[in-house]
């Protein structure tokens, strides 16, 4: 999941060197925190949050096997 978020974020931002993804995994949930350069925040959120929503859909699909809930936070 980390790789997926990293790949999508790095493909969309102006400054890929500032892309960081942290993963916090617990028994029932996985939290991913994506950090990008301040100017790039809009690019990984997308208009009306579409990029973030699409990423969440893919993460949910990946998590469906494990039965865990995935949360993606962008800062």
């Amino acid at each position: 999941m980390k790789e997926l978020v990293e790949y999508v974020a790095k493909s969309l931002v102006e400054d890929p060197s500032e892309v960081r993804v942290e993963v916090f995994e617990e028994t029932r949930m996985i939290l991913l925190r994506l950090t990008v350069a301040p100017d790039d925040t809009g690019r990984v959120i997308g208009r009306d949050g579409r990029v973030a929503q699409a990423l969440r859909s893919l993460l949910r699909s990946m998590a469906s096997k494990t039965g865990k809930r995935v949360t993606l936070k962008i800062s």
Partner: peptide, 21 residues
């Protein structure tokens, strides 16, 4: 099936991100 998702949601997300990138 998991690439399709409920009512094609995952597939739409995949198409959206692929086209965007």
């Amino acid at each position: 099936g998991r690439l399709i998702g409920r009512s094609g949601e995952t597939l739409s997300a995949l198409q959206y991100l692929t086209r965007l990138i």
